[in-house]
Nucleic acid binder design. Structure first.
Length: 575
RNA sequence: CGGGGUGUGGCGCAACGGCUAGCGCGCAUGGUUUGGGACCAUGAGGUCGGAGGUUCAAAUCCUCUCACCCCGACCA
């Protein structure tokens, strides 16, 4: 490709709206262009990168036994009613109405469509296992697109669906996919961590995310440097045992409940300070509105509520903090709320209330708290579950060491769905005994654009992008200096031709620009190998080679240059 | 949805009631240059996001509205 003909210009300054490194660099390099919030065009050089990523993914999916197919974007809304998932997806779904007033969804994902297909074409256990995938556009009306390609409303995704006879077979495919994903990231030069995850609107029981550690990431994950436990904070567990040095063991014997005056002491910190006890010995009350109903949440004072876990426990779709008014309307005294004697309100407790004793809690009376509250002696709850939020420094649930936390970009998510979708859509098969059973499903997704952006996020410098050779838009940047010298120009043309003929992907900078402009563009575009031909190098019948990642240059003889370049590229790929 | 911010040639910005809306980058033409974003000359390109209002006069003030960005909520 000749740079002079390449559609899309590089620019010195990034558009004002871009903040993250990948957003700025991809725009400046002329690889993407925004048309609306979370909606982007890929220009030729950006599209080349995307297609390379796509091919890597396709190869790994095929290798793992996947069959590629193509499912429709337009999906009858009835399918979503059938699965019931139109509720959990809610406003995230884009819908259109056809001329017959029939409602269609622009597919945010394809479990329904694929399960419907399985319903028709899978009849026997002999048809299983089945792994099918596609690479195509998804539509999601995200409340807030952000960070360029990091979160968008229209995006290309690889989604693979597995159908199995039972859980054990699903586990096997799940392992296989997990390995395929690791191969993909490795080939893209992207270090990732696999973490336990919440399955969100997709549903299902077990899921893992592949995370690229990056400050610009939207997700927070915790990990244990000691035993390797790692999880998205939405999912992460912590050990809630109270450390011995915090509360002496003699204080653990249940004591009689006692009301004490605590004027003006409302928050956990105030009450704990006022009474001289650690927050671990208090109970915190938090109020939520879940699908329109007030929920009383009790959790030990040193912990915080994890809303994702709470949502899962309640199996609700809408969840938000209650306002002070909404709480007061039920007769609860804000600041002195108590699970003791509560009536008519659903009470959800974190299991931390079973770890500890003689708690301080509100007395549901202005200016008073109870001392020595003990569960279940003094109060009852409707549900006890783990609904605590993990933090940096909390104890690891597996080995009790201190957990660390970091932000990350989710570049892949795999789910064990189980049978809830296949049951609803009738994707069942006859087993060896002639018994009809729902297929056990798994689904596995990678957002290609986000993967591309994540590569840029973790592989760039102040000059521009540093593409790994495997996904670079071009392998070689051929830089011609001194267009005005006919000898150099014709030598460059020859080299360009020779490289192209050898099947090397080369971007030939034949523009009439100064050397600085060309070198800077080469760096901005992030092309791995730069070749420079100038009167200086031609004098020695040679061409200068420089890797994007290195400072040093080397001279290559012009004779049979494509073979030498090929060798350099092969060596680089092998590393 | 809550909070904050921004809308002026393709991009980055200035002008903040008053003459023909400026500057840099980019673009076009000609010339001089050429190893890390060269220079000179000439030129093209703008209904100042939109609607309404105030005023002798609005890019500038007011009201409404739309779009985009950031933080949060939310979110595979």
């Amino acid at each position: 490709m000749r740079f002079s003909k390449l559609f899309g210009k590089t620019s010195r300054e990034a558009p004002a709206e871009a903040e993250s490194a990948s957003h700025q660099l991809l725009l400046r390099a002329g690889m993407i262009a925004q048309i609306a919030a979370g909606i982007y065009s890929y220009l030729p050089s950006g599209w080349r990168v995307l297609r390379k990523i796509e091919n890597i993914i396709r190869e790994e999916m095929d290798k793992a036994g996947g069959q590629e197919l193509m499912l429709p974007v337009l999906q009858p809304f009835e399918l979503w009613q059938q699965s019931g998932r139109y509720v959990s997806f809610g406003q995230t779904m884009f819908t259109v109405t056809d001329r017959k007033e029939h409602k269609l969804a622009l597919g945010p994902t394809h479990e329904e469509v694929i399960a419907d297909l399985a319903h028709r074409y899978v009849q026997s256990y002999r048809d299983l296992p089945l792994l099918v995938y596609q690479i195509q556009t998804k539509f999601r009306d995200e409340p807030r697109p952000r960070g360029g390609l990091l979160r968008v409303r229209e995006f290309i995704m690889k989604d693979l669906y597995s159908f199995d006879v039972d859980e054990a077979a699903l586990d096997e495919n799940y392992r296989k996919m997990s390995q395929a994903y690791q191969n993909i990231y490795a080939r893209c030069g992207l270090p990732t961590s696999i973490v336990e995850a919440d399955s969100g609107a997709i549903g299902g029981k077990e899921s893992h995310e592949f995370m690229v550690i990056a400050e610009t990431g939207e997700d927070e994950m915790v990990f244990c440097p000691h035993c390797g436990y790692s999880a998205n904070v939405e999912k992460a567990q912590i050990s809630k045992a109270i450390k011995k040095d915090v509360i002496a063991s003699e204080a653990k014997q249940p004591l009689p409940l006692e009301e004490i005056a605590t004027p003006e002491q409302k928050t956990i910190e105030e009450v704990a300070d006022f009474l001289g006890v650690p927050p671990e010995q208090t109970l915190k009350a938090v109020f939520y509105i879940a699908d329109g109903k007030l929920i009383f949440v009790v959790i030990r004072g040193d912990l915080e509520v994890n809303e994702t876990k709470l949502r899962n426990t309640l199996k609700c779709t809408e969840l938000r903090l209650a306002t002070e008014d909404e709480v007061q309307q039920t007769g609860i005294v804000v600041g002195f709320a108590s699970p003791i004697g509560i009536k008519g309100t659903k009470v959800i407790a974190d299991d931390s209330i079973t770890m500890g004793s003689n708690f301080i809690t509100g007395a549901n009376r202005q200016g008073y708290h109870f001392k020595n509250a003990n569960y279940p002696r003094d109060f009852q709850v409707d549900i006890t579950a783990d609904i605590a939020l993990a933090h940096h420094g909390d104890s690891c649930p597996k080995c009790d060491s201190n957990l660390s936390s970091t932000r990350g970009i989710e570049v892949g998510h795999i789910f064990k769905l189980g049978t809830f979708i296949s049951e609803k859509l009738g994707a069942s098969f006859l087993d060896q005994d002639g018994v009809s059973r729902p297929a056990v499903m798994g689904c596995y997704g990678i957002g290609l654009g986000r993967l591309l952006a994540a590569i840029v996020e973790q592989s760039h410098d102040d000059k521009g992008i540093i593409w790994p050779l495997s996904v670079a838009p071009y392998q070689v940047y051929l830089c011609l200096l001194h267009l005005d010298s006919p000898e150099v120009a014709s030598a460059a043309e020859k080299v360009y031709q020779e490289l192209e003929d050898a099947g090397i992907e080369v971007l030939f900078d034949d523009r009439d620009e100064s050397p600085g402009v060309k070198f800077n563009d080469a760096d901005l575009l992030g092309i791995p190998l730069r070749l420079t031909l100038s009167p200086r190098t031609l004098q020695n019948q040679s061409i200068e080679a420089k890797w994007r990642t290195e400072k040093e240059t080397q001279l290559l003889p012009l004779e049979n240059v494509s073979a030498k370049v090929n060798k350099l590229l092969r060596e680089k790929l092998a590393r």
